[in-house]
Design a protein around this nucleic acid. Structure first.
Length: 217
DNA sequence: CACCAGGGTGGTT
DNA sequence: AACCACCATGGT
């Protein structure tokens, strides 16, 4: 199994701090987490700005906004019809639960399940919300991380998400490092380890197509 | 033109 | 449980 603490150090040394959602408004982080689904952050941020301009980045405002108005802001982030309905549902959920202060009183397991019960919040988005909006030590498992493990450690290819989650949590436990790790995995994926790998430039000095270490220069 | 992007849902096998 | 089509816009 991969040493994820060592992987973290290697990626951090190569790419540096990513500055993902330090501690902005929690609701804005949640909205951003939904908007960015299957889209670039560039387009999600533009949609986020459009919502902010219309004053819709609060649970109360978004909960009672017209769907057509929300759609106009969300359109550029893609899947805008479903995302619009889901975002308004999330706003109503936050209000019904008494706000983020009340939600923060829940255990991490209860909180995760509460978000998962919502339309539009799956495992990856739920863990992103736990990690970036609530500061809980959640492990975000995305396609980049699966690829990385699949290529870096072919022997672990049959690992399930929950198995991978346990393995990561075993070597990286604090939320600050998990926060950075998720961002670093994506930075690395976009740089060299995406759908089409560029192993010649890989900072991990390993050919992910053969699983063997690259020759030292 | 094809392909990808910081996923999730519902249906089928 | 594994696969599939679908959602939809914007960038390269």
């Amino acid at each position: 199994m991969i040493r994820f603490d060592a992987l973290y150090e290697a990626l951090y040394a190569a790419y540096g701090p990513q500055g993902w959602w330090p501690a902005d408004d929690a609701f804005e982080i949640v909205v951003g987490a939904v908007l960015v689904q299957r889209t670039t952050w560039h387009n999600a941020a533009a949609a986020l700005d459009a919502l902010r301009v219309k004053g819709l980045l609060t649970p109360a405002a978004l909960a009672r906004a017209e769907l057509a108005v929300i759609e106009g802001c969300v359109r550029r982030a893609g899947f805008y019809r479903s995302k619009t309905v889901r975002l308004r549902g999330i706003a109503r959920f936050v209000i019904a639960r008494g706000g983020f202060g009340a939600l923060s009183a829940l255990s991490t397991d209860r909180l995760r399940q509460a978000w998962l019960d919502l339309e539009g919040v799956g495992p990856e988005t739920a863990d992103s919300i736990l990690l970036y909006a609530f500061g809980r030590p959640a492990v975000v498992i995305d396609e980049y991380l699966r690829r990385l493990v699949r290529r870096l450690a072919p022997a672990d290819a049959k690992l399930t998400d929950s198995g991978l989650r346990a393995a990561v949590a075993d070597s990286v436990d604090d939320s600050a490092r998990l926060n950075e790790l998720h961002a670093l995995v994506i930075a690395h994926g976009k740089a060299v380890c995406g759908a089409r790998p560029r192993c010649e430039e890989c900072v991990l000095r390993r050919d992910c197509r053969t699983g063997r270490a690259a020759s030292e220069a």
